[in-house]
């Protein structure tokens, strides 16, 4: 029962703050809503028993990306943004595309549990194991079978850092 309450609370927070990210006219409000939404997703990771992913989500997303986006909003915004139109004219086709996508997501969800079935006959896929700490297992994977992608990720980070410095510097006079 408790996990249902936790899940629905987190889902409500995520859904409404995501709607705030997309629909609020001020980009500053959107960035704050994004931080709330990312924290809610971190809570979902915790409820799924992925403790290391939870910590990484808090550190990288909430502590890094949300703050970085806030900085850029403060640097690149202007006062007239609050009164200009923030949605382009294509909202009706976009709504149709989103409807098609949500229909396909509904099909995928119903593949794992038919929506109109009796709950006692078809309970859906529930977790079979109790959550255990996963840090050691992930470390063994990262330094074992998946060492090459792990090193490639560090190369990608180095390249992106170089690119950010290159794009962000002032022009040489």
């Amino acid at each position: 029962m408790t996990e249902y309450i936790v899940f629905y609370m987190l889902a409500t927070v995520i859904a409404f703050s995501a709607l705030g990210v997309v629909l609020l006219p001020g980009v500053m409000h959107s960035a704050l809503c994004l931080g709330l939404c990312l924290a809610g997703v971190a809570g979902i990771f915790a409820s799924l028993g992925s403790d290391f992913v939870f910590a990484a989500q808090i550190l990288v997303y909430v502590g890094g990306i949300a703050v970085l986006i806030l900085f850029v909003v403060l640097l690149a915004g202007s006062a007239s943004d609050l009164v200009t139109r923030q949605i382009n004219g294509q909202w009706l086709p976009s709504l149709l595309i989103c409807g098609a996508f949500s229909w396909s997501f509904l099909q995928i969800t119903a593949y794992f549990r038919p929506l109109n079935c009796v709950a006692s006959l078809h309970p859906g896929i529930t977790a079979t194991a109790v959550p255990a700490p996963t840090v050691k297992a992930i470390a063994a994977l990262m330094l074992g079978d998946y060492a090459v992608p792990f090193e490639l990720i560090s190369l990608v980070l180095l390249a992106s850092m170089t690119g950010a410095v290159l794009f962000g510097r002032r022009k040489a006079q």
Partner: peptide, 19 residues
Amino acid sequence: MTLSHYLALSGVLFTIGLF
């Protein structure tokens, strides 16, 4: 909790982001 709950939540989040 079932897998479908999480799949539905992720579908909602993806659709909002796509919009």
